[in-house]
Each structure stands twice: as C-alpha cells, then as structure tokens.
C-alpha cells in the first residue's frame, strides 16, 4: 500500500523537473531592424528600463546576439511568437545548451 504513492511521487517529480527546465530567449542581430525599434520592443514588451533595453540592444548589435529573457518553456515560446510578430529574429534554447 505504501509503495504506490512513493512511485507516483517520483514520476511526478521527474515530469515537473522537465517542465521547469529553464529556457532562454535569444535575439539575433540583423542589419535591417533599427536600433530604436529593438529598444522600443524590449521596453514595451518586457517592461525593461531604458538602461537595460539599451544594454541588451547594444549586445545584440555588437556581439551578434543577446539572451533577453529566461523562463519556463511555455513562457519563452510565447515570447518567441511575440518577437516574430514584431519582426525580430528570435530563437529559444534550453538554458544549459546555450
């Protein structure tokens, strides 16, 4: 009688662990998107301060890419869809793979 809940608990924990694995949202540089537009999107969509948005935008511009958000898979997937809506070149990865 006591074995069952124990087993179930392990399975649930394993699944929960997989769902919680953090994902990152990467924005890639391209020569088309305006710096002002990228900053605007970072400020208006993510609610970042002017300083943080500028810093991330410059990172995209100079380093070719920047990690602009971290979260669970569902959140990051919805961020990627929003970024594609804005026309930014966004991808997602598992955090440890990046």
């Amino acid at each position: 009688m006591t074995a069952m809940p124990d087993v179930l608990e392990h399975v649930e924990q394993a699944q929960a662990h997989q769902l919680d694995q953090p994902y990152i949202l990467i924005i890639w540089n391209d020569p088309v998107n305006l710096m002002s537009y990228v900053s605007y999107v970072f400020r208006s969509y993510f609610g970042y301060s002017e300083e943080k948005a500028e810093k991330l935008m410059m990172q995209v511009h100079q380093d070719g890419r920047s990690v602009v958000a971290t979260g669970n898979r569902e959140k990051i997937e919805s961020d990627v869809a929003a970024m594609h809506g804005f026309g930014l070149w966004a991808t997602l990865s598992k955090e440890d793979a990046a």
């Binding site: 997937e77 990627v80 869809a81 594609h84 070149w89 966004a90 991808t91 997602l92 990865s93 793979a97």
Partner: peptide, 21 residues
Amino acid sequence: RLLPDSNPDDADASLEFRRLS
C-alpha cells in the same frame, strides 16, 4: 525571414512551434 525557425538546432521542435504558432 518574417517567420524564422524558433529553434535552429532542432528541426522537429521548430516544426512543432510552427504547427502551434
């Protein structure tokens, strides 16, 4: 370019994202 791959390292994941989004 308007609808880029969401996951350049994983074609299956990119396709699944396209199916949903």
